[in-house]
Design a protein around this nucleic acid. Structure first.
Lengths: 133, 133
DNA sequence: CGGTATCCTCATAGATACTG
DNA sequence: CAGTATCTATGAGGATACCG
């Protein structure tokens, strides 16, 4: 992949080795910023287990403001990861669901959340230890 | 896991379903913020393929400032994800390597980077399409 | 119900200069 | 080489109010 000769001591992953290749880093940033914001991961994980109404998402995600929920959903929609469906009843109803590609990202972030869940105690202990010594 | 009865239409993932359970969300935030910052993912991915010197990381990660590199590395060290080894020669030499737990996170973020790499074109097209229509 | 529109704040991170 | 110390600003995100 990396046509660069400096292949260091690559042990186990096939990530682009030179993250500074210009194209790679910049394009990567665009996408990592998508998943790096405060709410996308949680929203994607929730939608991973089925479509949700706007109000359901709002209630499910503790601490999110209406503004950020809308902004994040719009951004995910723009990236082709979720589909927004408006049912023009009164009062209106809006459902959000993952696209096929969105589903694959959802699986990734769910895996990450699982990791976080499994290691939060370890991290917590590490922090206390570090802050002490 | 979630002892709550409202198990909605869970289809395929085993993520904590109620992300607003207080404990879950807060603890999750702590850890997600770790991986959600601008540079951690890239650093973890790089260290995933072996130890690196400070200067190597600096050169490998395009656009990172000395300040942010140090801050991020310290934070990762504090969380028990990387180990910092100082060799007090002149000039000094400092190596960073993953802990066993760090390695597992590295695998997660590498997977995420792979996803980003595979779907950046799709996302790019989606954005243009959204911005047009 | 499902949003916009504003305003405002505070943390993240860049630039620059200095040091053991 | 591998940092630390400031100083600054930019923008992500919260609070609040209003709208179709």
């Amino acid at each position: 992949m990396a046509e660069d000769g400096t292949s260091k001591t690559a042990t186990h992953i096939d990530v682009p080795d030179q993250v500074n290749e210009g194209v790679t880093t910049c394009q990567l940033r665009e996408v990592l910023d998508r998943v790096g914001d405060k709410w996308s991961v949680l929203i994607m994980a929730l939608l991973g287990s089925g479509p949700r109404r706007y109000s359901e998402l709002r209630r499910s995600i503790d601490g999110i403001s209406q503004r950020m929920l809308t902004l994040t959903l719009r951004s995910l929609e723009r990236d082709g990861l979720v589909i927004r469906t408006v049912t023009p009843t009164t009062p209106p109803r809006v459902d959000y669901e993952l696209t096929p590609v969105g589903l694959t990202l959802s699986r990734e972030v769910s895996s990450l959340i699982r990791w976080a869940d499994e290691h939060r105690e370890y991290i917590s202990v590490s922090r206390r230890s570090y802050d002490a010594g």
